[in-house]
Simulated scan of single mutants.
Amino acid sequence: MPVTALVSAKSSGVTATALALTLASKRSSLLAECDPAGGTIRAGLLGGQVNAGFGLYHLARAERTGPEALANAFAAHLCHLDQAGHRKLLPGLTDPAQAAALARTWPALADVLHVMAQQAGHDVYIDAGRLAIEAGHLHPTLTPAPLLYRADLVLLVVRGTEQSLTLARHVVPSLRTALHEQGSGADALGLLLIEEGDFRAHQVGEALGAPVIAALPYTPDVAQYLTAGGRPPRGYGRSPLLRHARTASEQIEAAANRRQLQQQYAPAPAAPQLAGILQRLNQQSEAGAKHG
């Protein structure tokens, strides 16, 4: 299954989009909230039910001990987004100042996420937040660049508005170059369109020079619930956003599969320490995760 990183140029709905994809996936799914600017799901959709003792920041210390310690900590810090435990969340940072401590953790976390995708069969989504570009390069602290470099697809979330496209034009060249030089290739870059505004998918793709992999309807009431929590809107479970998100997850998988076939590459095998403890990792995530 693919590992898909979602990013934006500015406030295009990455978190709501990532949550919709995770909740609507036809398979088990995992959302890693890796925005260096801080996570919002803990205080939003989860309504503060998960405290700061859980989440991404606590993986930094475990990573310094070794791969097995990191994988065990990863399992222990997952939360459930559904009662059955098929939708999992790694909650994000509670303070942007914590981001610097994760600089050396990102590559090891990428390994764990690929284990969850390739061996545990999860659709894995990474909420990488807003791209930070410095001197034409991805910022080493304000963007989780190693996660983008290792992802099967990197989707820039955009809206069909002039403002969103203008902002996206400024980041696409730097992101494409970074994926070409340090990632798995510039063709990992795609677009996910939020259908707000006058521009249609083919126009957005032409304007930004990248393919629109999937599109989701603009549904502010459902997006607000996914972002801020509270009472779900009427008909939430049958909302166009969630229905289209399932289709989008299938389109993302198809795009990742096409890319793999075109490049004729096989995913790199996981480190033995990670592969050998996959069963324990899954058992811990089922038994020890907190419910959202």
Rank of each mutant, 00 (worst) to 15 (best):
A9S: 09
K10E: 08
S12Y: 09
T15H: 05
L21R: 00
S28H: 15
L30D: 01
E33R: 03
E33T: 07
D35C: 04
P36K: 01
A37K: 01
I41N: 02
I41V: 15
A43R: 02
L45A: 05
L46M: 06
G48C: 12
V50F: 02
N51W: 15
G53L: 05
G55Q: 04
Y57M: 10
Y57P: 04
Y57W: 03
L59F: 07
A60N: 03
F74D: 00
L78I: 01
C79R: 11
L81D: 01
L81K: 01
Q83W: 13
Q83L: 12
K88M: 14
L90Y: 03
G92M: 14
D95A: 11
D95F: 07
A97T: 14
Q98D: 14
A99L: 08
A100L: 13
W106F: 10
A108D: 12
L109N: 06
D111Q: 13
V112E: 02
Q119P: 02
V124G: 03
Y125T: 03
G129E: 02
R130A: 02
L131W: 00
A132M: 11
A132R: 04
A135I: 13
H139V: 06
H139Q: 09
A145V: 14
A145K: 06
L147V: 04
R150E: 08
D152R: 10
L153S: 11
L155E: 07
L156M: 10
L156D: 01
T161I: 08
Q163F: 13
S164F: 04
T166I: 07
L167Y: 09
H170D: 11
H170R: 13
V171A: 08
P173Q: 13
T177V: 14
T177R: 13
A178N: 07
L179F: 11
E181Q: 12
G183L: 12
S184L: 15
G185H: 00
A186W: 06
A188L: 10
L189S: 03
G190A: 02
L193G: 04
L193Q: 00
R200G: 11
R200V: 14
Q203D: 09
Q203S: 13
E206A: 13
L216V: 10
L216S: 04
L226C: 02
L226A: 02
A228P: 06
G229Q: 04
G230T: 06
R234Y: 10
S239T: 07
H244V: 07
T247Q: 15
E253D: 15
A254C: 09
A266G: 14
A266Y: 14
P267C: 08
P269Y: 05
P272Q: 10
L274K: 00
Q279K: 11
A287Q: 13
A287Y: 09
A289L: 08
